[in-house]
């Protein structure tokens, strides 16, 4: 039969391996719709390829899952914070739901604000406090220096008077 010939041609294999050309993909999809035998054979091949991948699998080292979980949670947290930041904007525009996405992009692109990691808050506080300390030190040493200069001046006058 014609369909068995196609099944044996290697077309399904190139499709499942992800290297089929656009033309071949179209052909596979139309054959899948048209012939149940082709559909079954393709699904069986996909299943077998998964089993094959399982047999070539490697056990991830301990801690990998936790790292992946942490990464995904981080992304979800970022998404949530972005959504909450822009939700008020959306809720005021209930009459035009189709424009929501466009509006979001526009607000993003024209925004002149910058998102900074929360950890920087403590760095800024430290810089501010250090700045104040340096300013206080500078004033203190300036006054001290002025006082010393005046004392030196007085001493010089005193010495001059004694010499005379």
């Amino acid at each position: 039969m014609e369909i068995n010939k196609i099944i044996e041609s290697g077309l399904m294999e190139t499709y499942v391996m992800g290297i089929a050309t656009e033309e071949e993909v179209k052909k596979v999809l139309s054959l899948k719709k048209e012939y149940p035998a082709f559909k079954d054979a393709l699904e069986q091949l996909e299943y077998d390829m998964e089993l094959l991948a399982q047999s070539m699998g490697i056990e991830p080292p301990a801690g990998t899952l936790a790292k992946i979980e942490h990464g995904i949670n981080e992304i979800q947290r970022q998404n949530q914070s972005v959504q909450t930041a822009f939700n008020p904007e959306y809720s005021s525009d209930k009459t035009q739901p189709d424009n929501r996405q466009e509006k979001y992009i526009e607000v993003e692109s024209e925004s002149n604000q910058m998102h900074v990691n929360k950890a920087w808050k403590w760095v800024f506080i430290a810089v501010f406090v250090l700045g104040k300390i340096f300013l206080a030190c500078a004033i203190y040493f300036y006054l001290e220096n002025r006082q010393v200069k005046e004392q030196i001046k007085e001493l010089k006058i005193e010495i001059k008077q004694k010499i005379r």
């Binding site: 991948a53 991830p60 992304i75």
Partner: peptide
């Protein structure tokens, strides 16, 4: 399964693990 596949490409278990984490997290995102 995916780690085995990545290791087949990268040929380095440590790098494969790093790629696995990066790929899975970006897959969830993209």
């Amino acid at each position: 399964m995916l780690l085995g596949y990545i290791n087949g490409i990268v040929q380095d278990p440590k790098k494969s693990e790093d790629h696995l984490i990066a790929i899975l997290t970006s897959f969830v995102k993209d």
